[in-house]
Every structure is written in C-alpha cells, then in structure tokens.
Design a protein around this nucleic acid. Sequence first.
DNA 1: CCAAAAGTGTTCTCAGTACACCCATGT
DNA 2: ACATGGGTGTACTGAGAACACTTTTGG
Lengths: 246, 246
Amino acid sequence: MTTESDFLTAYVAGDFPPFAVTVDLAIFSIRDGALTVLLVERAGHPYQRDWALPGGFVRADESVDAAAARELAEETGLADFGGHLEQLQTFGAPGRDPRMRVVSVAYVAFAPDLPTPVPGTDAADARWWAVDALGLDARAPGAVVPGPRLAFDHREILRVALERVRSKLEYSTLATAFVTEPFTLGELHAVYQAVWGAEIDLGNFRRKVLASPGFVARDEGAGKVRPARYRRGQCSTVLNPSILRP
Amino acid sequence: MTTESDFLTAYVAGDFPPFAVTVDLAIFSIRDGALTVLLVERAGHPYQRDWALPGGFVRADESVDAAAARELAEETGLADFGGHLEQLQTFGAPGRDPRMRVVSVAYVAFAPDLPTPVPGTDAADARWWAVDALGLDARAPGAVVPGPRLAFDHREILRVALERVRSKLEYSTLATAFVTEPFTLGELHAVYQAVWGAEIDLGNFRRKVLASPGFVARDEGAGKVRPARYRRGQCSTVLNPSILRP
DNA sequence: CCAAAAGTGTTCTCAGTACACCCATGT
DNA sequence: ACATGGGTGTACTGAGAACACTTTTGG
C-alpha cells in the first residue's frame, strides 16, 4: 500500500485531481548599495527569453520547504548560503502555467553578497536585477520603468516578495541576513537604506539597534578595532520595539 | 492538447510527481467573550474521531483561493459570511497524510458571530472550540490544558493561525471582521480583549481607534443613540500607528 | 435611584527625531 | 592635516499609559 498506488487508484476513481507542485524563489541581495533579486532567463517554452524566478518541481519524497532549500543551494552553488529562507505565499490560479495545473509555493531568501550565479540547465542566463529596474512600483503609471518581461505570474510574486522584505526589516532582525559576519553597524545601516530607498539618521539607528536585545552582539574576537565588528544576536528574531520606516 | 492529457503524459514520463492539493480553514470567531475556532470531528479514517480543521480538495478548474472561499461558504452555510479570508501558510511535509502525498494550503478566516454549524457529510460533529481549551500555548508544560486530539498536523497549523490572528489585530483593521455592522466601540474593544486575553484601557482604546483614519466610520443612519454605532472604514486596512499588545 | 457602561480630560513618561558635536583612522 | 565615516550628547516633540471624572442608559 504505497503512496503512489493509492494516489493513482484514487485519481482513476475521480476523487480529486492531480497537481504539479513547484517552488519559486525570490532571492534578494544587496549589491552596490541597491536591493537586487536573482532572475533567470528562460531557455525553453513557454515564456522563452522572459525572465523568471528560479525554482523547480517538488520531488515525491521531500517536503516543500526542503525543495526550496535544495533549489536555493543549486542556484547559489553553496551548501550553506549564510542567509535566511522563508515561505512567502502560494499561488495556485488555474492557467498560471499554460502547460498544466501547477501550484507554486513561493519563498523569499535574504542573502549576503553572493558570487555571480551560473545559469542552470534550462536557463539561458542568470543575473541580479535591481528591484528598481523591474517596474514593480505602480506609483506613477506614466513615467515608470517598464522593466524586463517576466514569465508566468512572477511579476505578482515579486511584488508580494518585495513588500515582505521591506516590512520584515521593520519588525525583525533579518537585516543581518544581508551581511556577512563580522559586520559593522555602518553596513547594517546601508542595508536598511538600500531596502527602503530612504535616508536614515545613522546616530539614531545605532542607538536603536544596540538597544534591541538579541539584534546584534559585539564580535570580541576582532579586538578594539575602530569600526567595531558585530555578529548576529543569538536569541529572538522579533524586534520590539520595531524600527519604523521613514 | 488538454491540461489533463499533458499532465498524464508528463507524469508517465517521470518528469514530476503528482500531488493532491487541499485547503484547510481556521475559522475564528468571538463567542461569549472568548476567541473560538471551528473544528469538525472526523467520521472516517485516518484520525477517526479526532478533531480537524474544515477543508477539502481543490478542484481542477478553480483557484486555490476560490477553493478556500467555497469551503468556507459550505462550512458556514452562508454565501457571504461577512468576515475576512486570507491565506496563512502552506504545509507540505511528506507523510502529513498517511494515505498519499498531500500539500495543504491553510487559510484563516475572521468571522462575526455565526450560527452553529451543521456537520458536513464526512464529519461526525462540528463545533466551536475556545482556543484556550485546545492546549496550543506551550507556556507551562506541566499544567497546560491537554485539549482534544487533533488530526494530521492541524495542531501546528492552529498554532500558526492563532499567532496570525493575534498579530493581525495590531497592525490592521481586521478586528472589524469579528463584529456585525453596525457595531459599538465597546464591541470592538471586547474583540481585542478576547483575542489578546488582556485588559485594555477603554478610554485610550477609543481615542486610538477614532484617531486612525479609515478604521471605523460613524453610522449616521442610527441617529444620536447613546452607544454610538459605527461601520467599517472603507479605505486602507493597514493600521499606522498600530495598536500595541499590552 | 443606582449600577454599569459610554465618553472625555489631564498628567506623566518615554521613545523617536533632528541635529550638533567629538573621535579615530587612513591617505 | 584633513577628510571621512564612526560614535556620542542633547533638546524637542508627540504618542501612549494611567487614571480621574462626567454623562447617559437600563433595571
């Protein structure tokens, strides 16, 4: 009485329809002071030559979370990429993939500065895109950047992902996932400014971070170097009080 | 070239495994001053006689969101239940359903006081459970309420759902989804106290709600009755500044 | 008439902000 | 030496907490 035979029996009996389940990853990183996201150019149909979020099918014997972690490792080429991965939202409209019924579980990853990615087997190219160049902000409908063509519903996924990243900085310590240890408060400050695209008073920022228990911990190993080095705080990831967006 | 034949062709070719996709609903309501959630008692195997979140399979031609809305309507017996429904998280560990590989997209619903539910076809019973009686809080491991046996990974889903409901009250106007229009500020106040299980100063609460643009709007139709009646504000659902948990 | 809830005022405190100002380090 | 970020001090402001108080309604 295996899982597969059960499934096929039930499917033939018409109890429920079969779905393909995929994971899609919005991997964010700070590069040259700008928030960027990793996209791959599709080599095959459909949406050939359009840009898409990296992702792939969930295998029969792995959890959806594990599939996301596996795809992330494959895409970055690193066993431990040193950042943070979390589930974003599931997209399951019929017709979002013209070939078949696919339900996609989207994830966001916060990554420190990573090496330039290598295109996968079914990708023509892979590169980091500045989020400002993707035309996601629907502020001024006339003068916006159009951005590249995006495959499937990935523009919508990216919009949700971007909002998640921006809001997560407010009430969590996940900004530290964007920097490599040890880091300075100046680097952390630059992360906030890049993600929010706004100026933040450095003095007040320093005080607020240092006053948040468990956000950062001084790196004693570095000694008394003048830009003091810090590491990620160990305990809670929830920030209270939160750091407010200007 | 239909979706189904494509799927079967690809499946036979071994490109990707088939999944069943379900939705599970955590429908919250305030009853007698306590936060409650709707659970159904399972009539069949597996987890017979255990309590489970209402839910069901996503159909071939409907979106996942639509499936959740359909299940919600079926479960409450109302075409428009007058509350709020949103996606929570997707649970996709292998083995979470012993029969087959199921990926479940969980939703939370905020409902005003609803009629007592009727058990569905495959349910032995259906009732509202006070969340305090479910033993979800892992505060005191010794003296906690054990609560009923919960099917599948629904205890974990409920934990996440409960945290979502509690935090959503802070930064959104969704508390209004728990009351029927028109409502008084006292009723809204009772919602916050029930969900957070804490005393909140009524005077400060009133000022804060009335100072939040778009939270509530005075119901002019009721005239100058003394407990003034309000309706949900039309515009934004995001609350800034937020109402802080004590 | 009295209790309970609705609604208003007042004070205190503290976090957040703006901005001025020193200090260390590298070139 | 001096420019550049690192790091600190300080006064102002406003939101939130606590709590006293008045007003209305229902029994």
